[in-house]
Structures are given as C-alpha cells and as structure tokens.
Simulated assay, not measured.
Amino acid sequence: MPAAEPSPYDVLGITPAATPPEVHAAYERALAAATGAPDREACTTAYLHLRNTGRRLGADILEYAAPDPSTTAREAFAGVAEQRFLPRDAPPPPITTLVVLRRSTTAEDHREPPPTDTTFATPARFTATADVLPPVDIPR
C-alpha cells in the first residue's frame, strides 16, 4: 500500500488557521530550507493548494475526512484469520441445536397474543420488574 501523501499544512509547517500572509511566509521558509528538487516541488504544490481558496477548502475536507471503511476494517481484522475460534480438538456444535433454539424462540413469540388496540403493547415477558434489578445498598 502506498504511503499517504503529507498534508499541505504539514509540508509548510503551519496550522489550518494560518492567514494568507502566514502561508506565504511559511512557503518562503520551507523553500529556503528545501534541499532538493522533490522538496521544492512539494513546497510549491502545497503553497499552490493553500493559496487558492477552493483548493484550500478541498485540502481541509480531505484532512478531516473519515478514512476508507474497507481499508480500516481490513487493518483492524488483519490478525483474525490466523486465530482459531474453537480449539482443534473440539468438534463444531451440531446445527440442529441452533435450529431448535431458534424454533423455540419463534414459537414463544407466536404464543403471545397480538395487541388489540392501535397502541403498541410490550409483551409480558419483556416488561421490567423489580426482580431483575441488582441489589442496592442504601446508605443510612
């Protein structure tokens, strides 16, 4: 993967809040400090981007844009393929147990009567009761 191109602000050593005279002064300093043709070319390109208001806005948008999600996900899960989720000795769970769990959940959903009026009613098995709360010590 190619390295990311440096920001025009980084090339000239300024912040996004720099005024046009500050951009020009930073360009002069960076050009004087440049040692080779590639450095001078990078300084000139950065200055041309930041001098033009439309290009500067584009540089600001790209600077703070979210990274590409496919690249980010690929980097985040890079080592997952090498890891095993189950030990080698453990057999995989039978698919019938998963299907039975799903059938029982579905059957339980269909046993509850649908709401009769137009307002939404929470099924009885999902209503909150005090027995689901953890015990709380009340200071005296």
Results as ranks from 00 to 15, higher is better:
Ala76Cys: 07
Glu22Ala: 09
Asn52Tyr: 13
Pro8Ser: 04
Ala42Thr: 10
Ala42Phe: 14
Thr122Ala: 07
Pro139Leu: 10
Pro115Gln: 01
Asp10Gln: 09
Ile95Phe: 07
Arg84Thr: 11
Thr119Phe: 03
Met1Ala: 12
Ala130His: 02
Ala33Trp: 03
Pro2Ser: 14
Pro20His: 07
Gly13Ile: 05
Arg88Thr: 14
Ala81Ile: 08
Leu57Cys: 11
Met1Val: 15
Ala124Asp: 05
Arg56Asp: 06
Asp137Ile: 06
Gly54Ser: 11
Ala128Gln: 15
Asn52Cys: 09
Thr96Gly: 13
Phe120Pro: 07
Leu98Lys: 10
Arg84Lys: 10
Thr105Pro: 00
Leu98Ser: 13
Glu82Lys: 04
Asp68Glu: 02
Glu5Ile: 14
Asp10Ala: 14
Pro123His: 10
Arg88Pro: 11
Thr122Tyr: 11
Ala30Glu: 08
Tyr47Lys: 09
Phe77Tyr: 05
Asp10Val: 07
Arg51Leu: 12
Ser104Trp: 14
Gly13Asn: 08
Pro114Lys: 14
Ala17His: 02
Glu82Met: 05
Asp109His: 14
Phe126Trp: 12
Thr96Gln: 12
Leu133Cys: 11
Leu48Asn: 14
Thr106Gly: 01
Ala107Met: 01
Pro38Met: 07
Thr53Cys: 04
Ala78Leu: 13
Gly54Asp: 12
Pro123Cys: 03
Pro94Ala: 09
Ala130Phe: 12
Ala81Trp: 02
Ala18Leu: 11
Pro113Met: 11
Ala121Met: 14
Arg102Gly: 13
Thr129His: 15
Ile138Thr: 08
Arg84His: 12
Ala121Glu: 14
Asp39Pro: 01
Pro91Asp: 09
Pro6Phe: 06
Glu75Pro: 01
Asn52Val: 10
Pro67Asn: 07
Ala130Gln: 06
Ala4Met: 06
Ala26Leu: 05
Thr19Tyr: 11
Pro67Asp: 01
Arg102Glu: 08
Thr106Leu: 13
Tyr64Arg: 05
Thr106Ala: 03
Ala34Ser: 14
Thr45Lys: 15
Ala30Asn: 02
Glu5Gln: 10
Ala26Asn: 05
Phe77Gly: 01
Phe85Ser: 15
Ala46Ile: 06
Pro38Val: 10
Ala30Leu: 01
Gly58Ile: 05
Ala18Glu: 01
His24Asn: 13
Thr127Trp: 01
Leu62Ala: 13
Glu75Lys: 05
Phe85Asp: 10
Arg74Pro: 07
Ala32Tyr: 13
Ala128Ile: 13
Thr129Lys: 09
Glu41Thr: 15
Ala65Ile: 01
Ala37Thr: 12
Phe126Tyr: 13
Gly54Asn: 06
Leu98Asn: 12
Pro20Ser: 01
Ile95Gln: 11
Tyr27Glu: 08
Tyr64Leu: 06
Val136Gly: 02
Ile61Leu: 07
Thr96Lys: 11
Tyr64Ser: 03
Ala42Pro: 00
Glu75Tyr: 00
Pro93His: 09
Ile61Gln: 10
Arg29His: 15
Thr122Ser: 06
Leu98Ala: 09
Arg74Ser: 06
Ala65Thr: 09
Ile95His: 09
Leu133Trp: 07
Ala73Gln: 08
Gly58His: 05
